[in-house]
């Protein structure tokens, strides 16, 4: 009887494994399509079809896409934006999360919900006034126009995650610092932040990806080529080279390689952060 149960379990596992294998092959097909289309000449692709192996690998597609698509401009902009937005946003979020997690004061619950409600605000409902505002500030069409809305829309999730993490840090540690004469500011900077490096790092990774990928705000606030970010630039490239399939696929591959690399190497931290707070600890 024992062996029956074991055999049935083995069979069940095999069926599940084969199902997952088949499904994951389907899931990888779009990636394979892009790669197989990007590394060959256009004539080869159209004559022999996407599923064939390339006759000759055309690495030059990548160099050509990079230069004709002006990806160096878009990469520089997206990286600059990340360098400005990510540390600033997470620091401001950490400042706000600290009292919400560790101090007692009036309206703390209401203030927390005020921030949480931002999780449900669609970007669309701020776009037109933001464009007017950035024009008035004289930074419409510059990369700086994206920092204010990106930080604002990042705050709700970041404050939520950091508040949850800060609450797990024993208050005794803060108390000890205060008894040593540390101000609340020092306790935050010297005790809370160093102990929260795992949460801060996770949020950084998530935020880097979100900033790299954001499309709609960048589409509306920026029209000048020299300020475009990668997604807007990629779409522009597609508009100009829509029938140059191999070149276009090389451009797509260029623009997704950074996020794929970050995801593959750092996914452990990343996935845990996304579901933070979704499950009772």
């Amino acid at each position: 009887m024992m062996s029956d149960v074991r055999r049935q379990r083995r069979l069940e596992q095999t069926v599940i494994f084969l199902g997952l294998l088949a499904l994951s092959l389907i899931w990888l097909t779009p990636f394979a399509t892009v790669v197989l289309s990007a590394i060959r000449g256009q004539g080869d692709l159209l004559a022999r079809g996407v599923f064939s192996l390339p006759k000759k690998i055309a690495w030059s597609n990548f160099a050509e896409a990079w230069s004709t698509g002006d990806f160096s401009i878009y990469f520089r902009n997206s990286l600059l934006l990340i360098a400005m937005k990510v540390p600033l946003g997470i620091f401001i979020a950490a400042l706000a999360a600290y009292p919400l997690a560790k101090l007692r004061f009036r309206f703390s619950g209401a203030i927390f919900i005020f921030f949480l409600a931002g999780l449900a605000v669609p970007v669309q409902v701020t776009l037109q006034p933001l464009l007017v505002m950035m024009k008035q500030l004289g930074i419409a069409n510059s990369l700086f126009a994206l920092v204010p809305p990106y930080v604002a829309f990042g705050l709700p999730f970041q404050i939520f995650v950091l508040r949850g993490f800060f609450r797990l840090i024993p208050s005794e540690l803060l108390e000890a610092a205060r008894l040593d004469g540390a101000s609340e500011w020092t306790a935050f900077l010297r005790v809370m932040l160093p102990l929260s490096v795992p949460a801060l790092a996770t949020l950084c990774i998530i935020d880097v990806l979100a900033t790299w990928n954001e499309f709609l705000i960048a589409l509306v606030l920026i029209s000048a080529k020299e300020s475009r970010t990668v997604p807007v630039g990629l779409l522009q490239f597609q508009g100009e080279y829509s029938s140059q399939y191999t070149l276009l696929m090389a451009g797509i591959l260029i623009s997704i390689v950074p996020v794929i690399a970050i995801f593959i190497f750092l996914q452990r931290y990343f996935v845990a952060g996304l579901t933070a707070g979704a499950v009772k600890g």
Binding site: W27, P30, T33, V50, L234, L235
Partner: peptide
């Protein structure tokens, strides 16, 4: 594998699938 498409820019996802759906040459 199943999570990886979620980290891509949706613009890239859209363009990849537009190519998949290409009437003549798409997968």
């Amino acid at each position: 594998i199943f999570y990886s498409p979620a980290v891509l820019p949706l613009v890239a996802v859209g363009l990849i699938w537009a190519w998949m759906y290409n009437p003549h040459f798409g997968v």
